[in-house]
Design a protein around this nucleic acid. Sequence first.
DNA 1: CATACGTGGTA
DNA 2: TTACCAAGTAT
Length: 296
Amino acid sequence: MSELASLTTAWYDTHARDLPWRAPDVGAWPVLVSEFMLQQTPVVRVLPVWREWVARWPAPADLAVEESGEAIRAWGRLGYPRRAMRLHACATALVERHGGEVPRRLDQMLALPGVGDYTARAVLAFAYGQRHPVVDTNVRRVAARTVTGAPDAGAATTPADLALVESLLPAADAAAARASAAFMELGAVLCTARTPRCESCPLRAHCKWRASGAALPEGPSRKPQRYAGTDRQVRGLLLAVLRHAPGPVARPALDVVWADAVQRERALASLLADGLVVPHGERYALPGTPSSSQPV
DNA sequence: CATACGTGGTA
DNA sequence: TTACCAAGTAT
């Protein structure tokens, strides 16, 4: 089964995108930062923010001494700002538990805030060259199409997915880590969800899905992902106001972002519950924002 | 196991 | 223009 890995790795050797977190001298912390940012956010939007973060906070300890509100502000418009909070909490945990280093053990990685099955293995593979099944949406799609012939993977990552991908990896650590990057790249660049470029694929002669006609799914393969009118949108609007404010913000400045007061209050309450926003008397701010005598 | 959680580009 | 989709995690 290593045929798929060797073909994909050979393709990767000549076609990989030149992404900065893949440079050989990049440490485990910048790799970890990239993985947090890449959770559900496209590469092109991550690039500028990642550069800013690793220049500003080159080690976990540099971020850990900041207020979490600084992380939220620097997160910009990457989306899912809870990731910024978790990355800040992760930096703190790295300082407290691991001397400011990124650990090399899977169980220690999985115990970190915001680090799940994918991120833990991705960092160990890409930063430390370890052999782990690195299973993201790209890899699951590539495996589903080539191996099982399905047009897409199931809704969630299963232990069977991990086992299947693990069985595809070369035995040696470094080769396995490179194959993991190669499978992801293949899914991101060629074996895409909507417009696969099978003509250019190094696996075209081995792909069960292509052999059966490579038919794309009829309707939506996943549940519809609404945004307009949801609490998520309202949270985003509220947080955008606070990100751009120099200090605590009074109610009227928040009220203007959404007409429905019930939904607005619910969104603000959830931001407070998440710790993304903290009260300053009658006003609100990102965590760690100094109180100002000049109401905004 | 399903659901909540941002944002913007592309077809 | 609507709708899909993008290197997931926590609950």
